[in-house]
């Protein structure tokens, strides 16, 4: 799909992004322990592309998304937006960037203000960036409603009058209102029923085809990611362990963690016999991540080297990078 085009413009380039949260403070209010939520993450997203970011709960994927949006300030690393570094921009300087960089949140209930009408929720970014008359505004919001599969007569309703899926459509309409180049989707379907999930995913795919928007699609469900992504990054304990195009990830996973994740995806065939890789133990605490490879405590193939030396991301094939000593 992608890469065949001669000119691929990179929208977002994240390099060695880190975000540590202080968890304990000593007597003088200085942080003594930190959660290594995002610990050196690098990736890029091209125009019109969807990058899936998967990993289990607490691996830092949502934090990475919020840090890129500058809802959280990064501890270190760089975020380059259309060739311009934005990781240290102030509120005012960030304002024009936010227009191009929107977000859809995980929880369709708490991400909509219960006291605003649906049309005001969707029109909020418009009011911040465009000076439209009331009539133009109404027309534009009606257009957005139609695009996300809601009816214009639902514009005057309050969020509690919509179902979960409809609310997430409102969230998508709000993100789409100012025609962003990239929408960070922070687990947009994990709070929805499976049947509704499919509708919302298909909506996102359709909108991408129509508006050419890029997505950073954060999720913990590989089946969902497989459907929507062009490339996939697998995160474990604050680090990306594997980054490649969708096809190679699902057909030829290189990292032992990716292998284990893929073996856990349910297959809708009761007779299918598969080798399930059951990982032993729990995810180590992100406050004190293990030395060496972060996965060595649970990796079935771990060697002495894995416990001592941290593996760097290396390209095993063009466009397929893995952080593992054994590959």
């Amino acid at each position: 799909m992608l890469g065949s085009e001669a000119l691929v413009t990179t929208l977002l380039q994240v390099h060695e992004l880190r975000k540590y949260f202080p968890v304990k403070k000593d007597f003088f209010g200085r942080g003594t322990a930190k959660v290594h939520a995002v610990d050196g993450v690098s990736f890029s997203i091209a125009a019109g592309e969807t990058l899936g970011l998967v990993g289990e709960s607490g691996c830092g994927k949502s934090t990475a998304g919020k840090t890129i949006l500058r809802l959280i300030d990064p501890t270190s690393g760089t975020i380059e937006w259309c060739g311009r570094r934005i990781e240290a921009l102030g509120r005012a300087a960030m304002h024009p960037v936010r227009r191009e960089l929107q977000v859809v949140f995980q929880d369709p209930y708490s991400s909509l203000n219960p006291r605003l009408r649906a049309r005001d929720i969707v029109a909020e970014p418009l009011r911040n960036y465009e000076s439209l008359s009331e009539a133009q505004m109404r027309e534009h919001v009606a257009f957005l409603f139609e695009k996300v599969g809601l009816r214009a007569d639902q514009m005057v309703r309050y969020p509690h009058e919509f179902s979960g899926g409809q609310r997430q459509r409102l969230g998508i309409a709000r993100a789409l209102a100012v025609r962003p180049k990239l929408i960070i989707c922070d687990e947009p379907v994990s709070a929805l029923d499976v049947s509704v999930q499919a509708q919302v995913i298909n909506l996102l795919v359709d909108l991408q085809a129509e508006f050419g928007v890029s997505y950073l699609f954060v999720a913990h469900d590989l089946a969902v990611v497989e459907h929507i992504s062009h490339r996939v990054a697998v995160m474990y304990l604050g680090k990306i362990v594997e980054l490649t195009d969708k096809r190679s990830l699902f057909r030829n996973p290189q990292h032992p963690y990716t292998e284990a994740l893929l073996s856990a995806v349910p297959v809708p065939d009761p007779k299918a016999k598969r080798k399930r890789i059951i990982l032993q133990g729990d995810v180590p605490s992100p406050v004190t991540p293990p030395p060496g490879c972060r996965f060595h405590t649970r990796c079935p193939y771990a060697e002495a080297r894995c416990r001592a030396e941290e593996p760097a991301m290396k390209e095993v094939r063009p466009g397929h990078s893995v952080a593992c000593h054994l590959r």
């Binding site: 304002h95 936010r98 909020e124 911040n128």
Partner: peptide, 19 residues
Amino acid sequence: PFVEAAMAAGTSIARTLVR
């Protein structure tokens, strides 16, 4: 999240407070 969403939508602090 809806306050975070307002920030992400470029809403100013004063307006976020009021709205």
